[in-house]
């Protein structure tokens, strides 16, 4: 694999939660680099800080200590409105529990990120329909999430993550709530995306069979990268 420039860089990142008297260190000096166009999977036991790390990379949270840079921008120093801007334009999230908006249809869910970015209406419809075809749900676009299976909901979530053509896709246990068949098709979509579009993907998973599809695997334990579990 040819060596691309580093797009995500975490340097000595700490995240500490204070629970009354106790301090919980979710991350303890995490160092991680992801190159542009790379498909990285992160594995590790429950509570090791995987989701915490993902949230930091995705600008949903800021570190207690250390620095995170995203395509050259140091996000630790940014204000909330700038973080929202980065989330909306450069990041696409895929969650374990799908996280679709229940009152909106599949198509409206996919259009929502574009609404926040002020895309014109016809562009939104065009893009949403294209993405629905991509994830094979064109015939379900007016269905609400509770009318879709788990696998279908996750495909809608993938389409939503792709809506603004982000640089980075962050998938936190995208197959965690799916049977192996639906999970397989979700992975296939991510692989296809990575291959055809060269999108950078960071995926958290518990499943070694899922992780093996990535270019590279990292292991997290007690808030740090370790060589092997």
């Amino acid at each position: 694999m040819k060596k691309n420039k580093v797009i995500i860089k975490l340097k000595d990142v700490w995240k500490t939660y204070t629970m009354g008297e106790n301090k919980v260190h979710a991350l303890r000096g995490l160092n991680l680099e992801v190159a542009e166009g790379e498909f990285l999977s992160i594995m590790g036991p429950s509570g090791s800080g995987k989701s915490t790390a993902m949230n930091m990379i995705g600008c949903l949270d800021i570190p207690s200590k250390g620095s995170i840079s995203l395509d050259g921008t140091d996000i630790a120093s940014l204000a909330e409105s700038d973080l929202a801007q980065i989330r909306g334009q450069r990041i696409g999230f895929i969650f374990q529990k799908f996280n679709l908006i229940n009152t909106l249809t599949a198509k409206e869910n996919i259009m929502l990120p574009m609404v926040f970015q002020g895309y014109p209406e016809n562009k939104r419809h065009e893009q949403a329909e294209r993405l629905l075809r991509l994830v094979d749900l064109h015939d379900r676009m007016d269905h609400r999430p509770n009318e879709l299976s788990g696998g279908q909901q996750q495909r809608v979530a993938i389409a939503r993550a792709l809506a603004v053509s982000p640089q980075v896709i962050l998938a936190d246990e995208p197959t965690g709530n799916l049977d192996s068949k639906s999970g397989g098709s979700v992975i296939d979509f991510l692989k296809k995306l990575h291959k055809e579009k060269g999108t950078t993907i960071v995926m958290v998973t518990h499943d070694a069979n899922v992780a093996k599809h990535a270019d590279r695997r990292e292991y997290l334990k007690d808030g740090q990268i370790v060589k092997k579990l």
């Binding site: 949903l60 801007q85 334009q89 908006i101 926040f116 970015q117």
Partner: peptide, 16 residues
């Protein structure tokens, strides 16, 4: 609350 979190994750600003 969860929905608010989702909207923020996909780019909603506080003002939105």
């Amino acid at each position: 609350t969860n929905e608010i979190g989702i909207m923020k994750a996909i780019g909603a600003r506080n003002g939105d």
